[in-house]
Amino acid sequence: MLRTVCLAAMVFLCGWVLMALEMVGPRLIERDFGSGIYVWGSVISVFLLALSVGYWTGGKASRRWKPPWTLAAIGFAVSAWILLIHFANRPVNDWLFTHGVQELAWSERWAALASAFSLFFVPSGLLGMISPMAIRLAASDLDRVGESAGLLYAVSTVGSFLGCLVTAFYLVDFGLSKVLLGHAASLAAGSLLFGWLCPDPKS
C-alpha cells in the first residue's frame, strides 16, 4: 500500500513537472526566435518524441533496475537538467541564432526546433521513463498489472493537467527563472523523499 502511494505521488510530481516545462519552453524560445506558431509546434513535437523514446527505454530499464532508488535517480537527473536549462538556455539560443539564423540563414522555425531539442529532449525523455518503471514496481501479480497501470496513468495525467494549468495561469507570472528553479527544487526534494520512503518490492 505504501509503495503504491509513493509511486502515485512520484508519477504525479513527474507529470506536473513535464507539463510545467512544456509551458515554460516556448517562452524561453520565443524571445530569441519570435512568437510564431512554429515555436509551440517545436516544443510539443520534441516532448512527444522524447516521451516515446522515454517510454520504450523505461520499459526496457524496468526489467533490469527494479529498486525504487532508480526512479529517484531519474528524478534527480531531471532536476539537474532543469538547472542546466536555467543557466544554459541563453548561451544555447545565442549560439543557435548566430550560427544558424545569422550565418547559415536557417529559417527561425528550424532554429526553434533545434533549441527545443537541445533544451528539452533529455528531461522529457527521462520523465517518460518514469511511468513504465513505476508500473513494474507497482505490479504485484500479473492479474493486477492493468489496474496498476491504469491508476498510475490516471494520477500522472492529473499531475500533468494541474502542472500545465497552474504554470500557465499563475506560476509563469512570477518569472521564468523562478518557475525553473522552483520545479528543480521540488523535483529534487520529491525524489529524495520517494527514494527514502518507498519500500523495495523484494522486502
Binding site: R31, D32, F33, G34, S35, G36, F97, T98, V101, Q102, E108
Partner: peptide, 13 residues
C-alpha cells in the same frame, strides 16, 4: 516579413 525581435537582431548583426 519576419518577427520583429528576430529581424532587429539580424539588423544588429
Amino acid at each position: 516579413v519576419r518577427d520583429g525581435r528576430v529581424q532587429v537582431r539580424l539588423f544588429l548583426a
